Amino acid sequence: DLPPEQWSHTTVRNALKDLLKDMNQSSLAKECPLSQSMISSIVNSTYYANVSAAKCQEFGRWYKHFKKTK
């Protein structure tokens, strides 16, 4: 379990794929700090720029909290 400071584009993509087993992209976009188009691009590997470090950390913090509450 990585601390949010160490999250990267790959970590975010893997976490998104895991979350999308249980929910669809639009529900996920309402919950998490990423937009639906960004989620779609990341999981389909069409998001060519890497997600910014700040966004990765924000998502990492959100993901840890989300997993605790589920």
Rank of each mutant, 00 (worst) to 15 (best):
T69V: 07
T69I: 15
D1L: 06
E58D: 04
G60Y: 02
M38H: 08
S8P: 01
D1G: 04
L28Q: 02
A53I: 11
S26A: 14
S27A: 15
L34K: 00
P3M: 14
S8N: 15
K55L: 11
S52F: 01
L34S: 01
I42D: 01
S52D: 05
F66Y: 07
L34G: 00
K64C: 09
V43D: 05
A15S: 05
S27C: 03
A15L: 03
Q57A: 12
V12D: 02
R13V: 08
E31L: 05
N24P: 12
K55G: 04
S45H: 13
L28D: 02
L28Y: 02
K67E: 09
N14C: 11
K67H: 15
F66W: 14
Y48H: 15
K17V: 07
S41L: 08
F66R: 07
N14D: 10
P4G: 10
T69D: 08
N50M: 04
K55A: 09
A15K: 06
L20D: 02
F66S: 04
K30D: 13
S27D: 08
Q57R: 13
Q25G: 09
S37N: 12
S41F: 09
I39V: 08
I39N: 00
N24L: 04
K68R: 12
Y48T: 14
K30G: 10
T10P: 11
Q57M: 13
K30P: 07
L16E: 03
K68M: 12
A15Q: 09
K67T: 06
L19E: 03
Y48P: 12
L28A: 03
W7Q: 01
T46N: 15
T46F: 13
Y48I: 12
P33Y: 02
P3I: 08
K67W: 05
C56Y: 08
T10V: 15
K67Y: 05
L16R: 02
L16P: 00
S45E: 11
K64D: 05
E31I: 13
L19V: 06
H65M: 13
Y47Q: 06
S26Y: 08
Q36R: 09
N50Y: 07
R13I: 02
Q57L: 08
G60D: 02
N14Y: 07
L20N: 03
K30Q: 07
L16Y: 04
S52L: 00
Q6S: 13
N44K: 14
W7I: 02
S45T: 14
I42K: 00
W62G: 00
V43Q: 03
K55V: 13
M23K: 03
Q36K: 10
I42Q: 03
D22T: 13
V51F: 09
A49S: 13
W7Y: 04
F59V: 04
S40Q: 13
H9V: 12
S37V: 10
L19S: 01
V12G: 03
D22C: 12
L34Y: 02
E58M: 06
E5R: 04
W7N: 02
P3V: 14
D1W: 01
T46D: 08
H65Y: 08
R13L: 06
D22M: 08
F66E: 04
Q36F: 11
E31M: 05
T46Q: 05
T10I: 15
T11K: 08
S35D: 12
S41V: 04
L19Q: 01
K30Y: 14
D18N: 14
Y63F: 03
K21M: 14
V43P: 00
L34V: 03
T10H: 11
M38L: 12
C32Q: 01
L19W: 00
C56I: 13
S8E: 05
A54L: 07
E31R: 13
K30W: 03
I39A: 00
Y47G: 14
K30R: 09
I39M: 05
L20W: 00
T46R: 08
W62S: 00
I42L: 13
A53G: 06
I39T: 02
E58G: 03
A49I: 06
T11N: 08
Q25A: 11
K21G: 07
F66P: 01
V43K: 06
K55N: 10
W62V: 03
T46L: 05
K55I: 02
C56M: 10
C56T: 04
S52V: 00
C32N: 00
K21C: 08
R13K: 13
R13T: 09
P4C: 04
Y47V: 11
Y48D: 13
Y63I: 03
P33A: 01
C32K: 01
V43C: 06
N44W: 03
F59N: 02
M38I: 05
K67Q: 10
T69Y: 03
W7C: 01
L16D: 01
R61T: 13
N50G: 12
